[in-house]
Design a protein around this nucleic acid. Sequence first.
DNA 1: GGAAAGTGTGAGCACTGCTCTCGCTTGATC
DNA 2: GATCAAGCGAGAGCAGTGCTCACACTTTCC
Lengths: 229, 229
Amino acid sequence: MSSVVRGARARARIEVTAAIKEEARRQLASDGAAKLSLRAVARELGMVSSALYRYFPSRDDLLTALIIDAYDSLGETAEAAHAAVADAAPVERWVTVGEAVRGWALAHPQEYALIYGSPVPGYSAPQTTVPAAARVGLLLIGIVRDAHRSHALEVPLLTDELVPEAVRLAADLAPDLPPGAVTALVAAWAQLYGLVGFELFGQFNRVVEEREPFFRHAVTRLAQGVGLR
Amino acid sequence: MSSVVRGARARARIEVTAAIKEEARRQLASDGAAKLSLRAVARELGMVSSALYRYFPSRDDLLTALIIDAYDSLGETAEAAHAAVADAAPVERWVTVGEAVRGWALAHPQEYALIYGSPVPGYSAPQTTVPAAARVGLLLIGIVRDAHRSHALEVPLLTDELVPEAVRLAADLAPDLPPGAVTALVAAWAQLYGLVGFELFGQFNRVVEEREPFFRHAVTRLAQGVGLR
DNA sequence: GGAAAGTGTGAGCACTGCTCTCGCTTGATC
DNA sequence: GATCAAGCGAGAGCAGTGCTCACACTTTCC
């Protein structure tokens, strides 16, 4: 992809594409993914609906673009929050990332639902979304790796029944970490999203009163379970 | 509500209602909640679409009925699995319930997405669903309570910052359990669904290879974190 | 038996995603 | 600099959706 914008037409295309995504994001935030309507977006932008298909070949493609943006926005938020405490103790770094994820989710519920709730049924996220989706995971791996390198990681034990190969990530992204740590890390990663999802989707209504301290407590224990101290 | 079916008309109504739900469930399972169409259900049943509104005043009401059924089906499955190991050690009972939830989710992905994924956007589950939704939670509470009564529960510690009142459940459903146990229980409950959701919605693709032993291991550690032995 | 309530019919409204043809404008090529 | 293809917007149109309403018919209740 060339970074040089060749002419007025190319520049206009970029602007219109951005405007469409912006308006779509607005409608997504206010009404949810199911009610996101191409026609309504076009109407709001003062163009006819068929013109919009010059920019996104289908509704699903527009949604995919929004999903990637959402992953990036979440990843950026988490990375920024983490950067502010990069030199702190591992547990604090972990908790900070967890709280950043929760904060972003509460601020962008529909976008969170789009990426971590049930994927819009009948639609499976294409491969393009993978790199953007991995950002928070990589952040967590980095924290555990740092702890391990400075011998501050208490490696969790593996049950007998669990073969180390169960978590493929070990061989791919974190070959330097012991299997027990990777396993615990992946599980904690998923569990973090369980906590956020339950709060966001109302499962904690009439159950958990003080959400924020509860989350901080739970996510701290999650960090300890991974072996961070 | 009278349990006596008064006449042919009342009996027919029950049958038609059941047939609608059955066909709707079929379409839900095959195409997902978003593509569930009243007209298609009616078509399949050989009736005109407007007739269906005599039974369910709106699409959302039909969805609500399916949600309640799904909660009940999940609860029933979990309870049945638990009953088979009711006399076993607390950890085994816990793991059995967890595996039952996972098994049901894998067998009914769309229904699981309907109740634990993002709720269908623009639609918030009415109060009617609450009792059905609580069944698995009550099961888990029962396991912890039994362990506590037989002095087999290692009560988890609470961090200073977390006030015991944070988890309101303590005062309502399990006043006999210590706050630390209730807090850990609620967190573990949410985390269980994080594990199931990540597997179901593809987040473990290219990450976790051997799903079943991984899940068993993670959910066992979850039980231990609650204090079960 | 007659009034009232319940049930199915078909037309119709407003909306959706998407396609296709038509012209206009832009921009690269000869 | 003229030419010609590619990019773009407009508008009509198709098939589908949720939902409403007036109408007829049937069952139930008084």
